[in-house]
Amino acid sequence: MSSSMDLTADTDTPGTSQPVVSTAQNISGLSVSLHPLVLLNISDHFTRVRLQTQNPNPQVIGALLGIQTGRDVEIFNSFELLFHLDTGAVVIDMEYFKDKQDQFKLVFPQYDFLGWYSMGAQPTLAEIDIHKQFLENNESPLFLQLDPASLHKDDRSKSLPVSLYESTIEVIGGQPQTLFIRSQYKIETGEAERIAVDHVSKPSVSTTTGGGAESSTLIAHLNTQRNAINMLHTRVAVLHQYLLDVNAGVVPKDHDVLRQIASLCNRLPAIDSAEFREEFFTEYNDVLLTSYLATITKGVNGMNELVDKFNVATNGTGRRTRGMGLLI
């Protein structure tokens, strides 16, 4: 995975600079709504790659998915993309991209490919070359750019370090050039997203053995469970090793300890009683029933949509037929 410095064109060098962002006013009338899940996915992607590669500024690329209705665009989700460098240029793995898109289509059939995302302070020629690779899948894809470095600057503005661009064609020096043009966006959240974002944005402070650190309540709860499981495993291992040593004659038999171990072992098959099986299967059937009910509800909803579309088509055909009959 290459860093963003490897992929950035020098746009300030005299004689080699080429504009990539149009200064014209955006008159496309596109209304873009961005959901928090997309920003969380991009942030997680960048943070994970940075920790795995030990690179403070890695380059990550991903696809944006959502729904477009006329000039209204709503970006709901995203996924990561694979790429490699070919003589310094980024080449997207289109086979992987199409496989991931088909997988998302199975779960979210209404989601279409709307654009892609990357990291950086501003678009460069490298982003233009990457953008052209997606034109086969969308004639006018969006480009979302996240600037993690801006979070460390002394900037009191509370705006998100996110820029959204559309692509446009302008004639420069008698040649048509693909340029980016800045587009406005708004953050759109659902009730479930509000709850998730609220949980992520409010970490609790807990003291650890390292001298104090910030962690969420979920992490503290999981750490407690992990420590308890490790302690249980250690104690069971001690009892197992003791029995092996007694059986091998390494240590003398202590009948009091053996009786306590036998009593502990005799308690374990208690969960295999008829009462336990009955209660377990009751809970299991309740879960299956809930799953079946959700599937049936989804099927009924799909059938209702099909019936509504059929009624609209039938009524329209009926009106046209009656009109033709009157003319005859």
Results as ranks from 00 to 15, higher is better:
residue 90 V to C: 05
residue 96 Y to S: 03
residue 78 S to D: 04
residue 225 Q to T: 15
residue 133 Q to G: 02
residue 233 H to I: 14
residue 106 L to N: 11
residue 216 S to Y: 04
residue 54 Q to G: 13
residue 51 L to V: 13
residue 18 Q to A: 06
residue 39 L to F: 01
residue 274 A to P: 08
residue 259 R to V: 04
residue 94 M to T: 15
residue 83 F to N: 02
residue 11 T to E: 15
residue 59 Q to G: 12
residue 16 T to P: 01
residue 118 S to Y: 09
residue 99 D to A: 01
residue 13 T to I: 07
residue 120 G to H: 06
residue 83 F to S: 02
residue 224 T to I: 07
residue 34 L to F: 07
residue 122 Q to D: 12
residue 306 L to A: 11
residue 283 E to L: 06
residue 304 N to P: 10
residue 219 I to G: 05
residue 167 S to L: 09
residue 213 A to C: 00
residue 280 F to Y: 07
residue 79 F to T: 04
residue 168 T to M: 05
residue 42 I to N: 02
residue 311 N to M: 08
residue 77 N to D: 12
residue 228 A to L: 06
residue 226 R to H: 11
residue 103 Q to N: 06
residue 48 R to E: 11
residue 268 L to R: 02
residue 200 V to R: 11
residue 239 L to R: 03
residue 170 E to D: 08
residue 163 S to T: 08
residue 192 A to C: 04
residue 268 L to N: 07
residue 267 R to W: 07
residue 84 H to N: 05
residue 284 Y to D: 15
residue 83 F to M: 03
residue 148 P to R: 03
residue 273 S to K: 00
residue 85 L to D: 13
residue 145 Q to T: 01
residue 41 N to L: 00
residue 300 V to K: 12
residue 50 R to I: 07
residue 178 T to R: 08
residue 130 I to M: 05
residue 227 N to F: 01
residue 104 F to Y: 09
residue 270 A to I: 09
residue 266 N to V: 09
residue 139 E to Q: 13
residue 214 E to M: 06
residue 55 N to A: 05
residue 285 N to G: 04
residue 278 E to K: 09
residue 197 V to S: 03
residue 35 H to E: 14
residue 244 L to Y: 06
residue 152 H to T: 12
residue 279 E to C: 08
residue 192 A to F: 04
residue 251 V to M: 02
residue 109 P to R: 05
residue 170 E to I: 05
residue 183 S to T: 15
residue 245 D to P: 04
residue 82 L to I: 07
residue 87 T to S: 08
residue 138 N to R: 00
residue 61 I to E: 15
residue 305 E to I: 10
residue 74 E to D: 14
residue 265 C to R: 02
residue 44 D to Y: 03
residue 237 A to W: 00
residue 283 E to G: 10
residue 141 P to L: 05
residue 302 G to W: 00
residue 77 N to E: 12
residue 325 G to A: 14
residue 58 P to A: 10
residue 213 A to E: 10
residue 293 L to T: 15
residue 16 T to G: 02
residue 261 I to F: 07
residue 228 A to T: 15
residue 247 N to L: 02
residue 12 D to Q: 03
residue 109 P to V: 10
residue 178 T to V: 13
residue 290 T to K: 10
residue 211 G to V: 01
residue 98 K to W: 05
residue 305 E to C: 02
residue 167 S to D: 14
residue 275 E to T: 11
residue 313 A to D: 14
residue 44 D to N: 09
residue 95 E to L: 00
residue 290 T to F: 13
residue 193 E to Q: 02
residue 228 A to I: 14
residue 40 L to A: 04
residue 170 E to P: 00
residue 235 R to K: 08
residue 305 E to V: 11
residue 17 S to T: 12
residue 231 M to A: 15
residue 245 D to Q: 09
residue 254 D to T: 09
residue 3 S to H: 01
residue 84 H to G: 03
residue 70 G to H: 03
residue 67 I to M: 11
residue 154 D to M: 04
residue 218 L to N: 12
residue 18 Q to L: 05
residue 120 G to N: 06
residue 17 S to P: 05
residue 21 V to I: 11
residue 196 A to S: 10
residue 291 S to F: 14
residue 34 L to P: 01
residue 226 R to A: 09
residue 234 T to D: 15
residue 170 E to N: 03
residue 126 A to W: 04
residue 302 G to P: 00
